[in-house]
Amino acid sequence: MNWTWFHKLSSPPHFHRFARRWTPWMECAAAALVVYGLIGGLILAPPDYQQGEVYRIIYVHVPAAWLSLALYSGMAVAGLIVLIWRVKLAECALISIAPVGASFTALALATGMLWGKPTWGAYWVWDARLTSELVLLFLYLGVIALHGAMSEPRAAARAAALLAVVGWVNVPIVRYSVDWWNSLHQTSSITLLGKPTLDASMLWPLFGMALGLTLFSAANVMRRMQAENVRRNARQRWVREQLEAPHV
């Protein structure tokens, strides 16, 4: 297989053209999937036999929680690439992922609290899953703050990369906290192997939402990367040529 297209992506002008072409398509696909997921999950799916209507918050909560972990892992991988190969675009990726991931972490915490009040009777319990997710939010905020405090962009990105990579130890703790400790939070209904304990009419909208929000965050990260990429290369000729070119 020819990997030239992949290596070309690490060149700023190529990435700019690539992102400009594909981001709108990703956004369209994300919007379609989210609309399907919301209609399927909020209207068509039957209420849960135990939790009633309140379970429907999983259509936002579960994808947000997945993404909070997936985006942190993506940020840590970008951090490793920054530290080992010093790829400039990975620096853009690292700092573009952080705010998106922090938002999804906050969203997962907020929706979880809204669900916890009617179900557990409390907005917040000091439980392993909730606490480690909160720590994840603090880690995101630390990465953003450390990056913001340094004036030299490349040193700032490398410092943030170090913190992101070291902080990655928290990700498996969040993921497996419900299995390792006696947590109030329920264990996963969907596993990689084995039959999900969720009915198909509830499951497909959930997958739709998960894929839709994943595409949304990928598109959002790409747009942020595009902006950061242009800002860093503002003095380069290709930027002027690209920005003056007619929009596709």
């Binding site: 880690l139 630390g142 703050a145 450390l146 405090a149 340094m150 040193a155 913190l163 070291v166 902080g167």
Partner: peptide, 20 residues
Amino acid sequence: ALTASLPRAGLLLPLCVLPL
């Protein structure tokens, strides 16, 4: 070590260290 090059670490140092 991460915040050494800044003029003042201030609140940044606890913000980086506490979650870890």
